[in-house]
Each structure stands twice: as structure tokens, then as C-alpha cells.
Nucleic acid binder design. Structure first.
Lengths: 157, 157
DNA sequence: ATGATCTCCGATCAATATGGTCGGACTAAG
DNA sequence: CTTAGTCCGACCATATTGATCGGAGATCAT
């Protein structure tokens, strides 16, 4: 339960990769294209492309067209939260259907609903959790990808 | 994103209702049947029935067959956690596909995966949150349902 | 300047999971 | 023994997700 979609998974992997390349010590500032990521992580190329499109559209990354083109983080890794990434792909956080009810629309159970308040509390807790975690935290937490470079030039955050 | 299924919603509503009846001051220990819950909360009868079957099968509630039959909480409200309820309906908690990988099966991205560890951390936090919240907490948080028929115990509305 | 190639982009199709429904089996009261 | 009421298990329709295809735009090499 509460499984996030594959697309969201791919988005996280891709952004982590872009961040590690862009802010790494090997080739800082390098532009990275879709194909590179897809091959590195065995992600279907076209699907990943679509995911990156959405991230670009939502202002998380910048796209550069043409040969030698690719993607670039729109802001620093510390300024991109997990919540922002997931919401870009899967839409706003909502444990229940009635989380974002507009004025005038109610779920069929609303009038006698007994679980709305406590569930919203749970939702807030999760939101807080995801908002306090950034891409930078992900870089530090796990061993970074290591591109085949014989001179292992210490990769750190 | 991270939306829980309707069935899980219904399960929570039903259990909250059963608990509030069983441990309430009006008719303590009363058995409550599917129809009563379905009508009270406008839930499709047959679907709710299926949900309750699963809860019964998983040992959260006890079923009593025949006329005057119905369901009863298997243990006290304080001993039933939200996590147990949700997992009964939607299966074990798993943010990612690789959360419960058996020995020998790996996702296609596993060898270079860079997000597994941090995501598992997030998952643990959510699990802790859901495990620390019980049905009893839900009873206290919201105004209890009020059956509007002090005289007749039976058909209303 | 121009061609060609490489990139991103939008619309389309299949697979899975969910929401919802139907008829049968059992139990216990009258 | 009859009968009404309950739980139970298998079935179908729909919606969301996963994956795919061809086209438009931009940059570099000639």
C-alpha cells in the first residue's frame, strides 16, 4: 500500500543522477541527456523522456535542445524537496479523496464521515516529512554512482 | 499521490463505527451488521461486505452469522492500529517495488539504484506513524456518530 | 547558408489495479 | 421444519498507470 508510481521512481533516480553529475567533482556543470540516464538505470527510454518533460514543465529542471543538449537542475539540490518531485509527477499529496475538495463538492460520506480529521492529521505528518527531505539529503545518504573513471577522485557532496 | 484506496477508506469508517457502538455508552456490546454501516455512510452494500470479509479473515473483527448477526471488534480499540487496518486491505506497506524483495529477485535498476536507501528511510517513518495511531485515537479525535432514534432500535431514516 | 543529425515534445495504445456487482451457502430464529 | 436474514466467494466494468510511436525544433558540421 501507499506505493508510489514507477514514473515517480524514475523521476527520483533521474534527478539524483543529474544532481550528482552537476554538483560532483568530475564534470561539474555537465549537461546530461535522457539516453545516458536510461541506459545507466535500465529505464525505458521513451517513458523516462516523458517524465523529464513533466519535470521540466514544472520548473524543476531546465531543458537544452539540439545536439549536445540535455537537462540541468533548475536550482541547487538543497532547494529541491522530495515532495516537490513527487507532486510534479503524481499530483498533489492526498491520502483521501476529500483532501482537496473544492467549495461545493462533497464526497458521499461527508456528512457522517468520522475519519476525515484524523486522516488529514496523518497526511500533514507525511507532507512535513517529504517537505523536509531534499535531493541533497539523497546524495549524501547513499554511495554515489561511479562513472568508469580509473582515477577515483573522491566523490563527495 | 499516495492516495489510499476507497476500500481502505470504507474499512476505516466501518471499524470506527463498530468501535463507537461497541464501546459507546448507548448500546455497549451491540452487534452491528453490514447494512447498518452501508446506509449510515452511503457505502455500496456489497462492496462494504467484501471489505468486512477481509477484515474478518485477518482477525481484526469477528463475524456472527444468522439473523441478529453482524460484526464485533476482535480486540479493544486501543489494540488495533491504523497500519494493521490498511495492511489488511491493501497489503503490506511498500513505498517502492523493491521494499520486500525476496532473496534472488531484483528490480532492473537495483545494481545502480541510488534512491533505495533514502526511500526506505521515508517508508520507515511512515510505518512508525501508522503503527503508533490506533482506532481509539480516532474515536477521541472526532465527534462520535449519534444515532437519532432513542426509542426504536432498528430501521431509521 | 544549408543539410543532417540529435534532441525534446505531444498524442496514442496496451496492461494492470481498482471499484463495483451478482448469485450461492450458511446460521439461527420462529 | 420453514423461512428470513446473514456472511461468503467468484465475476465483470471502469479508471489509472505503464509503455510506445511518430513528429517538431534546435544545434553543430560542412
Amino acid at each position: 500500500m501507499l506505493k508510489i508510481s514507477k514514473k515517480a521512481d524514475y523521476a527520483l533516480m533521474a534527478l539524483q543522477h543529474i544532481a550528482s553529475v552537476q554538483f560532483g567533482d568530475i564534470t561539474p556543470g555537465r549537461v546530461v541527456n535522457t539516453k545516458e540516464i536510461a541506459e545507466e538505470y535500465n529505464i525505458p527510454l521513451e517513458l523516462l523522456a516523458k517524465v523529464l518533460q513533466v519535470l521540466s514543465k514544472n520548473g524543476l529542471i531546465e531543458s537544452h535542445n539540439g545536439p549536445k543538449g540535455g537537462y540541468l537542475l533548475a536550482r541547487s539540490a538543497g532547494q529541491i524537496t522530495i515532495a516537490q518531485i513527487l507532486e510534479s509527477i503524481e499530483g498533489p499529496l492526498g491520502i483521501t479523496d476529500c483532501s482537496h475538495e473544492k467549495e461545493g463538492e462533497f464526497c458521499m460520506q461527508r456528512d457522517h464521515c468520522n475519519i476525515r480529521t484524523p486522516l488529514l492529521k496523518v497526511q500533514d505528518s507525511i507532507a512535513q516529512l517529504l517537505n523536509n527531505m531534499t535531493l541533497e539529503d539523497m546524495l549524501g545518504g547513499t554511495p554515489l554512482i561511479t562513472i568508469q573513471s580509473p582515477s577515483a577522485q573522491g566523490v563527495e557532496r
